[in-house]
Design a protein around this nucleic acid. Structure first.
Length: 344
DNA sequence: TCACAGTCAATACT
DNA sequence: AGTATTGACTGTGA
């Protein structure tokens, strides 16, 4: 059921993708309030990141950098625009929820606060969308200035990104990342293991579904996305391949007749782990990330990170994971800017 | 109308 | 301060 729905949604969604995705969020009103809290809440603890996150207003610098590069990125839940259009190609967002869902989303929980119209949310999804392409070059360059302090991640991060996108690498990469810093280590171990089994199930299920629906063909795509099992796939590894893969996913999703639209199967477990690791790494509070990147509350994020449901079991909740995923795929500077921006 | 999924917000922990 | 837990609410689909 779900798959079907989404597939459809995706297909259509491609064009409007962003909106839809964002729309998903319902409860904006609440969030908005939330945000406020957050923004002033944290003071300077975190150091570099903190400042950024806080939205202290320094970002300006970044802005310059990021702005030009990817306007879309900047936007977050609030801004909600759909600049991403620029990147149409990216369409990653598209997977929007099933059509029906989409519509629903708008009103969702409005009752409390109707103020925020759908548009706010719109942006969120897009935030990242697209840039994988440019990421390395610019990100690094631009990043250098601002985030020079970044931990070792920089190098690692970059790599990790690509792998993830491909899917295969994700596992490995994630581990690396985690291992890189202390805290991550234990996380990775425990979780990884558990996840291992978990994931495998997930994947298998998902793939099967897709496979069936699509016919073997779909499976391949999925795989890559998930990055789960098969490292063997050729495309998964190289960056270049990565791009192509992406296209496929996105595009392919739409394209695939089968309705593989959601080709983008996401290994929720892994994404959760990675996000957890990244947040720790940069000392990004869940609340900030949740609000700015995901347009969700801290509690929601915490739950998702700790108890990610298998992709196959997710419905509208997939959008949230997609956002996390996208964020992971973005270059550092983009991530940062996204955080800040949102804050702004 | 019911079951479900997704989230929030409040609150309890660390 | 940040994270985890949980009760309640809302939209969706059957």
């Amino acid at each position: 059921m779900e798959l079907t729905m989404e597939n459809i949604g995706n297909l259509h969604g491609v064009s409007h993708s962003h909106q839809t995705s964002d729309l998903m969020n319902s409860q904006h009103a609440r969030q908005s309030s939330h945000r406020n809290l957050v923004s002033h809440g944290r003071s300077a603890m975190v150091s570099s990141m903190a400042s950024i996150l806080e939205g202290a207003g320094d970002y300006r610098t970044d802005h310059a950098l990021s702005g030009p590069l990817h306007p879309a990125m900047t936007m977050s839940c609030d801004s909600g625009m759909s600049l991403s259009s620029t990147y149409t190609t990216l369409t990653p967002l598209q997977h929007l929820p099933p059509i029906s869902t989409v519509s629903e989303k708008f009103h969702h929980q409005h009752p409390h606060a109707h103020h925020h119209p759908a548009h706010q949310r719109l942006s969120a999804g897009n935030v990242s969308g697209s840039f994988t392409l440019m990421r390395d070059d610019r990100s690094l360059a631009s990043m250098g200035n601002i985030y020079g302090h970044y931990p070792k991640d920089m190098s690692g991060m970059g790599q990790s990104l690509s792998p993830l996108s491909n899917g295969l690498g994700s596992l490995h990469s994630s581990q690396q990342t985690l291992s890189a810093y202390g805290p991550g280590a234990h996380l990775s171990n425990d979780k990884m293991i558990s996840s291992g089994g978990f994931e495998s199930h997930m994947l298998s299920r998902g793939e099967e579904h897709l496979a069936r629906g699509l016919g073997g063909h779909g499976a391949g795509l999925m795989t890559s996305l998930n990055g789960m099992h098969h490292h063997s796939h050729p495309h998964s590894q190289a960056n270049g391949s990565m791009l192509s893969d992406r296209d496929r996913q996105t595009v392919g999703g739409g394209g695939q007749g089968g309705g593989s639209g959601q080709v983008e199967e996401i290994n929720t477990k892994e994404v959760a782990q990675r996000i957890t690791a990244e947040l720790k790494r940069y000392s990004i509070p869940q609340a900030i990330f949740a609000q700015r990147i995901l347009c969700r509350s801290q509690g929601t994020l915490s739950d998702l990170l700790r108890n990610p449901k298998p992709w196959s079991k997710l419905k509208s909740g997939r959008e949230t994971f997609r956002r996390m995923w996208k964020w992971l795929q973005e270059p550092e500077f983009q991530r940062m800017s996204a955080l800040r921006l949102a804050g702004e």
